[in-house]
Design a protein around this nucleic acid. Structure first.
Lengths: 136, 136
DNA sequence: TTAAGCATTAAAGCGTACTTTAAGTCAAAC
DNA sequence: GTTTGACTTAAAGTACGCTTTAATGCTTAA
């Protein structure tokens, strides 16, 4: 049930150095140590790191994660603040969704212009050329 | 029809310094200049900057944009390479979509746990607690 | 004519999140 | 016994994409 940092690293697909860095930044309070001072990770620690990784990959800052941790350490009375941080991230996710949709549309349009040029030697719509061929 | 850097900046919502930086990096070849050496932007330049911004916001690197520009300057024979870069970005967009979905799920789950604690004083599912209240 | 407001350049600086390095301890394998 | 490999810490370094600074010049309105 308890894991060394190497095992944790392998299970999470995350460098051991990064895990140590997270601990140093206060994102992993109360990580147990063995008799030699080595870190011992339990499943709940791994779950929390996994969750942080999920939030980090979608742009949540280390500082925001640190805030959540600090609030959590103060007890359940801080749940409203923690909710606010998560709701802000939720909004950020919505923004990213919009940007992603926009980018999907743009890349697909661009690719079909390339296809048109390659396959049919079509004269591409002037307004969509932007960078194909020359710049003028 | 032609715009100053300030007008371009305002129309794009992008700092003039950033536009100059893009030009310096080779992302904006052949930007016209007036008799004083000031940049003159045309609609197609703005369109290209808009497209780059869309790609940048979804994680495409400046270096990749530079590659596209360099290839475009070499003519239509480089369309296969340009397609490959865009298809790679398309894959990246798919990856981001998955991460976004994962994050949506996680944040919603977390928020409903907070709601449960606040509203009904429910004992939260042990496996989903992670950081609520204490860390053990 | 002088100050405001726009432009130019090159170069240095900054924020974020790691990542790498350096220097050392410890325990088991050979 | 000594080498190997995993661990420890603190600190310096890196990558990226701007952003800011500094020094300067042109043009127009007061």
């Amino acid at each position: 049930m308890p894991f060394s940092i190497k095992e944790a690293s392998e299970m999470l697909g995350c460098p051991a150095h990064t895990i140590r860095y997270y601990e140093k930044e206060g994102l992993l309070p109360n990580i147990a140590r063995d008799e030699h001072g080595n870190r011992i990770f339990e499943q709940k620690d791994l779950d929390w790191i996994k969750l942080m990784t999920c939030f980090r990959r979608t742009g949540m800052k280390v500082a925001a994660l640190k805030q959540i941790v600090d609030l959590a350490l103060q007890g359940e009375s801080t749940i409203p603040q923690r909710k606010a941080i998560l709701e802000e991230h939720q909004q950020e996710l919505h923004r990213q969704q919009l940007e992603l949709n926009e980018a999907f549309h743009a890349v697909n349009q661009k690719l079909s212009i390339y296809d048109g040029i390659q396959k049919g030697n079509l004269a591409p719509d002037r307004d969509l050329r932007m960078d194909e061929g020359k710049f003028h």
